[in-house]
Amino acid sequence: MRFYTTSVGKKIVMAISGFIVFGFVVIHLVGNLQIFFGPETLNRYAEMLQGLGGALWLFRALLLLSIVLHIVAATQVTLQSWQARPKGYAVTRYRTTSYAARTMRWGGPLIALFVVYHILHLTTGGLHPRPAGFISQAGGTINVYNNVVYGFQIWWTSALYIIAILALCLHLYHGVSSMMQSVGLNHPRWNQWRRFAAVFFSLFVAAAGVSIPLAVLLGLVQPV
């Protein structure tokens, strides 16, 4: 536990837990892009995931643990850093830090709130004005495809998703390169690949995440 009492240890916990959640986000988006292959493909994929049973819950537990650790460690290092400069400067000038790096602490809570909304919206299907045709899983038949399409046909829901995805894109842009630094994965020869990975994955998440609500809003994806 001496490890965790230091900010260096907390940052390592943040890096590893962040990596797990990041990996999930990428796989989650790749899986859900199957909506563009039609209702059968996406619904079969959803049934396959539901069929995992215990493994699915094991995975959800790991994910939840990672999210909790990430938030707790982030809160602790943030408080430590705020306390480290009780009196600020009259003038502050930055040279290299990015907008993404400076908004990590605001983007994080925003994304956490979105995740709660996202689960209530599409995983449980509760707490949301349900358009006609919206079928929750509790109702028996799983029609993930229609749920997504009907859900995103509400313009402000799609707008919320798009804003949240863009916040996630910023968070990951700094997060992906930062997590490698925090666990010591840094070598002059590989650092350009680190930057490439940060740009590539954050842009992929933005493009994939925005494409689904946008396609529904534009009527490119229709309910069946």
């Binding site: 430590q80 705020w82 040279r95 930062s178």
Partner: peptide, 21 residues
Amino acid sequence: VRAMEDAGFGACSNHGECEAV
């Protein structure tokens, strides 16, 4: 690292401002 923590410094969040100044 222990001495650094005890002194009351903040946590690194990889802004890179240190290297720049």
